[in-house]
Design a protein around this nucleic acid. Structure first.
Length: 698
DNA sequence: GTGTAATGCCTTTTT
DNA sequence: GGCATTACAC
């Protein structure tokens, strides 16, 4: 049986046992937040509280499942009946049930960001807005402004004034696109991610009986990652929980990294306003990282503009200093990282090693090298499995079968057929939902159309499990697929197999479609849980996780902090918190890499400055190393300014001298190719053109 | 109306 | 290497 008093520290114990009334837990990084939630779940069940009256809202479905699993392990039996998931999946569940109250079909489709952008593109075209104007914002800029406006609950104009003032001259057009977008979704029974939340709120405000039903059903509400909730999510918690409700919110204001999605720490700071009798509990003991790693984390926060009063204290006092490694460029960074992984994998299992980065593309070079060296890895973040074009194609068939008003899916599916373009699709759709005259004549005279609709109508007649539907759809899609992706299609087949695999776990197309858009599976194939692999992840996707070894790459200006927030102080603060989140994922070893040069796509290299976060950091909290031209790591003496990357004068004078290259060995410099390459004659390899940074001149 | 090739532009994070 | 736009052929 569990002994919460023995297993928990006093603050955690208090959080676990305060089960009546509202509680706000401020949980610093590594302070046993998950542990606290898990114990609280187990504690509630142990007290005899009906599990089905507990609702656990987390940031991802995976997080919820993990917590429920651990609570079960603690109790020594499976906990059944606890509802857990994301705000969005919860909203979806309620809205399916009461969709008709808001005028939606029960079969409404959930659209992802790509779908939303497609809709916006079409609206732009059909309204003739921005035609021929190259400076008119692109579909994804328009979408992100609209979504930002909804999430922050500011007008489009206000959002644009803050973050896109150069586009202000288009406010009026943007507003027209916005309202057409809203109409379009309603007309075709579509909801985007934001609609799920706002429609749930609307439902609860307009239909007291639904709210009452929810309140009676869920008498214990727990919300994780509260710093990353937005305004409407905050109001939903208040609505469902009620002023005096048994609500526990857990969060850390220092780890708020989703303000681009409208998340606001106001929800934490003003929690007491919504719940006046709140008890506030702070968890400040860090169990995860060693003191040197935590010192670096605290150092990061000390430069934050809004100072956080908390200073985490480590339980584990001893450990190596974090390392800062200056590599020659981002390509050599990749090989140094892979070497480090090989070296460390002798001490740590691969599952305890992670490489983190700001944006998905930054890991490409490392992925290639890992592939070559056959070290298994999984990548998290970046483009998602369900965003791949061929997966979207397949899902569009299912959506169209399930929700025949889903015009976006009509377009996707019909455009795959030869001789069918946007105009025909529009006429077909309009005729289909009204008189069906043009529809039947056109379909009957077009072989492929006839086959397609034969299939769709057959599958619509009865309810089939998604795997069956997918199988039938594949028969139709396979030749199109091979044609569309000609030489590249074998690479995409594993994705289809995975989709079929996932679908086999569902008996209902509706659930399958909702889940796959709300909780896209990780791009890596989900294998056995015991598999050993290195984790490559965006920092955002690494939230809440931990590894013994964390390697953070590309700590250079324009990459981290992202150049996108160069002149926005709030965005810069968020990047700083992101850096904090990244570093506090490490338990034992933290390595920061900062290349001195970056290679552009064309292959030329340009100098990069170390990230502002590195520059402002006190040198006491890390040990500094650099890669020399032979590829070895040597310590940088403190106080000594590292050589400026712009000192590339005198390349011409090197002609005639000898130099050394890591792979090709010794060679004679026989020419200079401006601005930064040399032509070298290597013994045994012949003449090569090499970037200057790869060479050490004798 | 549809399909294709050529051009110039930008490239974050996620439910 | 993708995406939007344009021009041009069928």
């Amino acid at each position: 049986m569990i002994d919460i008093e023995r297993d928990l520290n006093p603050a955690q114990y208090e959080a676990v046992t305060s089960i009546h009334g509202p509680v706000l837990v401020i949980a610093g990084a590594g302070s046993g937040k998950t542990r606290t939630i898990v114990y609280r779940l187990a504690h509630l069940v142990n007290l005899g509280i009906n599990p089905s009256s507990i609702l656990l809202l987390t940031f991802t479905k995976k997080a919820a499942q993990e917590m429920l699993f651990r609570a079960g392990r603690l109790l020594g039996r499976e906990v059944e009946g606890i509802s857990g998931g994301t705000f969005h999946s919860f909203a979806n569940m309620v809205l399916r049930r009461f969709s008709s109250y808001l005028g939606y079909k029960r079969e409404f489709s959930i659209i992802d960001q790509g779908d939303s952008q497609d809709i916006i593109k079409q609206i732009k075209e059909s309204l003739g807005i921005g035609k021929g104007d190259r400076s008119f914002p692109k579909k994804n800029t328009i979408f992100s402004l609209i979504s930002r406006s909804r999430n922050t609950e500011l007008s489009l104009e206000e959002v644009m004034m803050e973050g896109a003032s150069h586009l202000l001259m288009y406010v009026e057009e943007m507003e027209r696109i916005y309202s057409s977008y809203t109409e379009f979704k309603i007309k075709h029974h579509l909801m985007d991610y934001d609609d799920l939340l706002f429609n749930l709120e609307k439902l609860l405000l307009e239909y007291g009986e639904v709210l009452e039903w929810l309140r009676l059903r869920f008498t214990y509400l727990m919300v994780d990652e509260y710093q990353d909730t937005n305004l409407v999510q905050g109001r939903l918690v208040r609505l469902i929980g009620g002023e005096e409700g048994n609500v526990m919110a857990v969060g850390d204001d220092a780890q708020s990294i989703y303000s681009f999605r409208g998340a606001t720490i106001k929800n934490i700071l003003e929690f007491k306003k919504g719940f006046p009798s709140t008890k506030i509990i702070k968890l400040e003991q860090n169990y995860r990282s060693t003191q040197p790693i935590l010192d670096l984390g605290n150092e990061i926060l000390s430069h934050a503009r809004d100072k956080y009063e908390k200073k985490l204290v480590a339980i584990r006092k001893k450990g190596p200093l974090p390392q800062l490694i200056h590599t020659i460029n981002d390509r050599t960074q990749a090989s140094i990282v892979v070497n480090k992984i090989e070296e460390l994998s002798r001490t740590y299992p691969l599952n305890e090693i992670a490489v983190l980065f700001r944006a998905g593309y930054q890991s490409y070079q490392i992925e290639m090298l890992l592939g070559k060296s056959s070290i298994p890895y999984k990548k998290f973040g970046g483009i998602k499995f369900s965003e791949a074009a061929h997966i979207k194609d397949l899902l569009a068939y299912l959506k169209l079968i399930h929700n025949p008003w889903d015009y976006i899916s009509w377009q996707r599916v019909l455009a795959l057929l030869p001789g069918i373009g946007p105009k025909t699709i529009k006429r077909l759709y309009e005729s289909y939902i009204s008189d069906k005259k043009y529809f039947s004549s056109r379909v009957n005279s077009h072989l492929e159309l006839k086959a397609l609709f034969g299939l769709i109508f057959t599958l619509q007649k009865d309810k089939h499990p998604p795997s069956f539907v997918l199988e039938r759809v594949m028969e139709h899609y396979l030749p199109i697929f091979k044609e569309k992706y000609h030489d590249d299609y074998p690479r995409r087949i594993p994705g289809i197999e995975e989709l079929i695999q996932i679908s086999s776990g569902y008996s209902d197309v509706e659930d399958f479609l909702s889940d796959i858009t709300l909780e896209p599976p990780d791009s890596a194939l989900q294998g056995d849980p015991l598999a050993q692999y290195v984790t490559l992840s965006t920092i955002h996707s690494a939230k809440g996780l931990e590894w013994a070894v964390v390697i953070l790459i590309d700590m250079v200006e324009d990459r981290f902090p992202s150049r996108h927030c160069a002149n926005d102080p709030h965005a810069l603060e968020e990047e700083r918190r992101l850096f904090y989140v990244a570093c506090t994922r490490a338990k034992d070893i933290l390595i920061l890499c900062s290349p001195r040069y970056l290679l552009s796509r064309e292959g030329d290299s340009y100098p990069a400055r170390p990230s502002i976060f590195i520059q402002e950091m006190s040198p006491c909290v890390y040990e500094e190393m650099e890669e020399n031209y032979t590829g070895a790591l040597v310590p940088v003496r403190k106080g000594q300014k590292s050589p400026s990357p712009s000192s590339k004068a005198g390349l011409e004078e090197m002609v005639g001298r000898w130099c050394h290259h890591r792979i090709f060995g010794r060679g004679k410099i026989i020419g200079f190719i401006p601005p930064n390459k040399l032509r070298i004659n290597f013994a045994g390899f012949g003449i090569k053109v090499i970037l200057k940074e790869y060479l050490s001149v004798e």
